[in-house]
Design a protein around this nucleic acid. Structure first.
Lengths: 195, 195, 195, 195
DNA sequence: TATGAATGAGAGTTCATTCAT
DNA sequence: CATGAATGAACTCTCATTCAT
């Protein structure tokens, strides 16, 4: 009546400690892809499958769904924070926009409450959103059009995320450019920060 | 004393054709409420329960999840089309904006792919989105700022939908107003059309 | 990415509302058997299987593990309460003892804290235990050997439950009789109450 | 500069044969604690963690769950056997009772089938139970109340174990004393044997 | 025609056990 | 010899969809 694995199953090899780091990275990469395609609510089993590991491995590395999401998005936000030190506002907006066009998951962070019904805003999403805002604000000139009202900056980012739809990244990028143009805000090249 | 069909047994009372229409309406109303509260992915059983009908009835009227969503949103779009005949662009934008702030489901129509990862754009969402666009475009002056590029109009609507987040309708309405302001577009009062 | 049952699977028939009551009874009967054999921690799936129903049915009738256990044990306790009205203390002890020898699950109620580690005493077990005590106490004469100290009565019942081990019911019954003899307490025939 | 075996790399430090014995002892001690807290079904990983060793070590020393349990309980039984040489029956019963109030695991040995549904009686539990019986019987006077029937002695011990419930050791000890009183058997101080 | 029970696939989670390092 | 990551089966619970009545 208790949990009994098949007695003499052909257990695939463990891989040893080396594999741990590799698997963690594979999980994050897989999660990034799946999230981008299917959003943050995608089944964890799909992520484990894409990463080529068992489900238990996923749970070893990330105790719950939020921990995995946080790990994936943390990376995005870190790139943005880094970009904030290397460029000006236009450049940084380009980086932020790149992430918006790349990942549906990242959009829900900036919306910071599942557009799809908003039961509860996950803590970590709020925190990450704050960090993006802080990064942007360090580069925002006093006389910028988005500087007059305190909420305008993140509202504008949210607006662009709302424009970013379409099947291909090119599609989404074109719409993102149009959105910034309609806001009258200059944006640099839309690109990831890791130059 | 012999076994008879028991003429008025307490069978679930079918109600006849009258009830059919009533049930359909009840289902749509219930769906609208549930969608607003829990998003488009809410359990269908919850909708049937709220409508006070069995689940079978739901399936009789709406063969699948999309059909029900389409029916609910059809109503929204019809109100918008009606408003297009009674007001000017600013007024119509107000009505459209009202629906955006009222219903998370309606937003996903205009995004036309669910920010949250709807992999494929449902046919009906595209169709409904087109109808909203057509309604708006009938009132769009040649020299309106959103008239210069063909996609700008719906991009702008999508942008506003991206700004519309927050726990309460007041919250969302405030952000919607800010969004239109940032776009430099004049909007009338944010209200449903059925005056 | 969502829950999709096999599109055109060969769905076994539903059985209709008549089956509901039958299934509920089958579930309780199956649970009683499984509990007796494997204790209260037996997998619910095993119970559903033995009852010949899907797992969903189990959850429809009993929202959680405790509800099913309560339903099963409720029946035992009700029999004991009924017996308390038809017999004297010796007779009632016989009925209680019968349930002890019949069901491992019933024993854990009277222990009222999983002997196997006692993480937490389930509420319902405590309540059921109280009802057994109350039934016994209505028939307990003032001068009975178990009446001198307030806890003695249920301690004695617990003691008998501790003696009741062995592979067959006959085995367990013999030990139960020996236990009561060692306590110097007279017990009537060991039998279920439904005479 | 060539690739060498890296003589003193930070490999997990095997520790040599000394550590083996130390680890075994740590595992048994950890298991004793965990068993007392969470019962015999506690996760093995928790035991390994508490012992401060990897899970592999646990499996090296104890091929399965039963082997570990046996090792833990072996120690209890050995103490009882030792106490049988230093005291009389009352004293020995005190020692046995102490183990009963101390360890839920020990109780299931004397029940020799886990009240909670252990379908099959584990071999080792039977063997340990026999040794406890033998120890007690060496001190049992011919005219003792538990000496008239061959099974009475262990039935009585089982009965006391059935009385021993409650959240704290004091609780359990009080009930154990009451149980022996109800059996009319004199018990010495309830204490571990290692005086 | 309406009801609401039943089905069963699948998501999430936990652990016993193995094995590369 | 020790480590601790990986495996994967088993368990719980949820829900879309069907169907006897």
């Amino acid at each position: 009546m208790t949990q009994q694995p098949m007695p003499d199953a052909r257990r695939p090899a463990s891989g040893g400690p080396k594999a741990a780091a590799r698997n963690r990275a594979a999980l994050i990469a897989a999660a990034r892809e799946i999230y981008a395609e299917h959003g943050l609510k995608a089944p964890l089993s799909a992520i484990a499958r894409r990463a080529g590991v068992g489900q238990g491995v996923l749970y070893r590395h990330f105790p719950d769904r939020a921990a995995l999401a946080a790990a994936v998005l943390e990376e995005n936000v870190r790139q943005i924070e880094k970009a904030a030190q290397d460029t000006d506002l236009a450049g940084l907006l380009g980086v932020v926009t790149w992430h918006l066009t790349e990942s549906a998951a990242f959009i829900s962070v900036l919306h910071a409450d599942g557009t799809d019904g908003g039961s509860a805003v996950p803590e970590y999403a709020v925190a990450l959103s704050r960090r993006v805002e802080r990064a942007l604000r360090t580069l925002l000139p006093q006389d910028h059009p988005l500087a007059s009202e305190p909420d305008d900056l993140m509202i504008a980012v949210g607006m662009v995320s709302g424009a970013v739809t379409g099947p291909t990244r090119e599609h989404r990028e074109r719409r993102a450019r149009a959105a910034w143009r309609l806001l009258g805000v200059e944006v640099g090249p839309i690109r990831p920060s890791e130059i």
